[in-house]
Design a protein around this nucleic acid. Structure first.
Length: 109
RNA sequence: GGAGUGGGCCAGGCGGUCGCACGCGCACGUGUGCGCGUGAGGAAAGUCCGGACUCCACAGGGCAGGGUGCCUGCUAACUGCAGGGCGCGGCGACGCGACGGAAAGUGCCACAGAAAAGAAAACUCUCCCGCGUACGCGGGAGAAAAGCUGAAACGGUGCGGUAAGAGCGCACCAGCGUCACGGCAACGUGGCGGCUUGGCAAACCCCACCUGGAGCAAGGGCGAAUAGGAGCGAUCAAGGCCGGCCCGGCCGUCGCUCGGGUUGCCCGCGUGAGGCCGUCGGCGACGGCGGUCCCAGAUAGAUGACCGUCCACGACAGAAUCCGGCUUACCGGCCCACUCCACUC
């Protein structure tokens, strides 16, 4: 799956994107530029609140696995998935439900 | 068998499905597909020391500032390690210690206590004189032992000595100085001497030794560049300005040279003070020699997710330039050596 590689682009999504929250995950999304046909990308973010380096790595991996199961990247959107403190310890079924819930509410899928 | 000391090692295993990063090979549509291989730690952590490396600065020396502080080694180097010495703790194996100087100077030593540092004063003790029946009172002289306090009281114990006492004298012990012997040394052992000096230097300080600064976001390259700038040279042939004209100057034109900043990409970037095995030297840290292996390299940052299964139910925790240490965190398991206690033969 294609990921967003530049810090500046992620900041843009933080500023301009729309936000949908859930206790296990927060999604930020933004429609891709019309000229860019295959622009759909994903990014995974875990802040200091999530924990140390090990916890942050695990949260991002778990999110990445859930996104892959749900068919990421989603056409037409750049999506940033933000981990929360409980993300790394949640059962994968709960996490799948959480991610698809925020994406459906945002209209991404 | 129990209790303990020191050292070393490990950090869930196995199977299946899907997936990530890098390298190699093969395809084609040149960034994708397939296959194979490799892929976090003992602390990767804290960033506390020491180096390598890079850039800047620099004649040499000194001061200031900072660091270190028993001795001898090891090392690229160290605030590290090894061995030794001394002190303290433990029955012991063993552990802990910034462990130079307090007669160079300054300063501090709470509370208590007469006194916390050129030692003087008080209670007190002894003797003499006077008063007084006696207890005692007044004056003079001598003494600092004993008692009280405290973490610490101007050496300790004993004998002699004395009016009572005191290193006043002597013996032993502690400490100081000095000599001899052993040891490379720290230091130890013994002799002699005069009898004596509180503690604190992670208080200022003194002495000895070490010491430029910043850090991989170091530093370098590519590049948007027919942009824009600086210097040198040529030309003034065409043109503009100063001028009536020439010389000259400025602009212009052409050629050459040069540095600067920023998102992006590349290098730096992993063959190294390297790991393992053997052997030799050394008590050891470590070193020499030989063999063998190539063992993460990302850049929003790669090791994961799910299922099954087994068991003692899995701690602390994620490389970011590299290496040597220190310190801190940690569920537990295994191995080796040693100590103490109990029991059996």
């Amino acid at each position: 799956m294609r990921t967003i590689r530049s810090n500046r682009e992620i900041e843009t999504i933080f500023l301009r994107g729309r936000r949908v929250a859930h206790p296990l995950v927060v999604a930020l999304y933004r429609p891709t530029a019309a000229a860019d046909g295959d622009g759909a990308r994903v990014a995974f973010v875990a802040g200091k609140k999530v924990g140390g380096a090990v916890s942050r790595n695990r949260a991002k991996r778990v999110l990445r696995a859930a996104a892959r199961r749900l068919g990421a990247p989603w056409p037409g959107y750049d999506v940033v998935l933000i981990a929360r403190p409980l993300t790394g310890r949640a059962p994968s079924a709960d996490l799948d439900a959480a991610v698809s819930s925020v994406l459906e509410r945002g209209g991404v899928i």
